[in-house]
Write a protein that binds this DNA or RNA. Structure first.
Lengths: 206, 206
DNA sequence: GCATTATAATTGAACGTTCAATCAAGATTC
DNA sequence: GAATCTTGATTGAACGTTCAATTATAATGC
């Protein structure tokens, strides 16, 4: 077959593999199940396109375009005030995880990162570091011009990412609790308000 | 053997199982490896004390005493000002994850929650819900007496837990980044400051 | 335009290995 | 000697992977 057909088959297998890996985990996901999901008549066909199971798994991760690289390239944000910049970042972040394929990749990253150094590297490089490398310099600059009070931007960046990640994580992991899960937009708005203004009430003394 | 020896054997197996499950994941952790780790001469002995692999895994989770139940029982905190209450909670939280056994359980909970409903239930009931059930009513009360500004306590509770969890998560998952990871105490202090006062600087306008 | 050849893709059967689980037999304790 | 515990050997199923054989597609020669 020509290159296009080959590419299609590859994509078809990767697509199926992502699904199976995401809901079974790497170990429990068998080549047979992936082949079935991909409507192949034989699991052996997978070995025409991939060296082995680990290679297929790597291809699933490599094909994941979800990621947050682009955010840091977009330097339009540096001119925004903190509220707007954080809003922009948070919305981009949640947009990414609206896509079902990205949700599945997120599951894989969280789950397999604990037992697989390659996966945790990939997680760090495609999610954690881009966010950090975007936020820390931005915070530094805004501290310099007194739009933010003096503080360690490593910590605030981490805290902000934590608030976003925790939403996506609980959303994915505890469907039972989704009743009390506020909508993303509401959550974003309140979280940024907390981040900028805090929760302090009128009674400053106990 | 007597009951004590039996209890010891059980504990010995559970101890070994927790280690192996934590660093291999449920699927890759084999009964044979667990038996070896527990210094048993035969894997078959495990089946004297446990019905099967899943039963052993359940025992590992059930034996985990890490958890945050007790926090909500401790109602001494209601009288504390938000700063002190959050400080207390955060310190308890980090204390718990200083214990290596609890770190391992945390790894298991994060990793297996993605593919196993029982584990995610356990995670929710022993970590997520206790924190939520502790924070939300507390915030509600402090809003009522104007120590905190009016807001949705579900959101702030989630945000605060997110900031704590993200620290533990990154600490466990990305050892490469640990250079830039601030010490727990420093992180706690700054995060609570953000949570109460925000990051707003002197220049209120752009 | 048809026959021939080469290459790419697909298949089903089989391999060796590993796994959870079982079992019959032995050891220990009371 | 009965109950509790321990052991090494064993089982059958499932796994990733290989391979020889087969079909589909494209390329070439006439």
């Amino acid at each position: 077959m020509d290159a296009q057909v080959q590419a299609n088959r590859r994509a078809q297998i990767i697509f199926a593999a992502r699904e199976v890996f995401a809901c079974e985990g790497y170990s429990k996901a068998s080549i047979k199940k992936i082949a079935t999901k991909a409507n192949l008549n034989s699991p052996a066909l997978i070995y025409w396109y991939f060296d082995n199971k680990a290679d297929l798994f790597a291809a699933v991760l490599a094909e994941a375009t979800l990621m947050l690289h682009e955010i840091s390239l977009n330097n339009l944000i540096e001119d925004l005030a903190p509220q707007e910049a954080l809003h922009f970042l948070a919305q981009r972040f949640f947009e990414i995880f609206e896509c079902p394929a990205n949700k599945r990749i997120f599951r894989i990253l969280i789950s397999e990162s604990m037992n697989n150094a390659e996966v945790s590297d990939h997680f760090a490089e495609t999610v954690i570091l881009p966010l950090k490398n975007y936020l820390v310099p931005y915070f530094q600059q805004k501290i310099a011009v007194h739009l933010l009070r003096p503080h360690d931007p490593e910590i605030s960046a981490r805290a902000f990412v934590g608030m976003l990640m925790h939403y996506v994580f609980t959303d994915q992991t505890f469907p039972q609790l989704n009743a009390s899960q506020p909508l993303p937009d509401v959550y974003i708005e309140e979280v940024i308000k907390i981040f900028m203004d805090g929760l302090q009430g009128e009674n400053l003394s106990v």
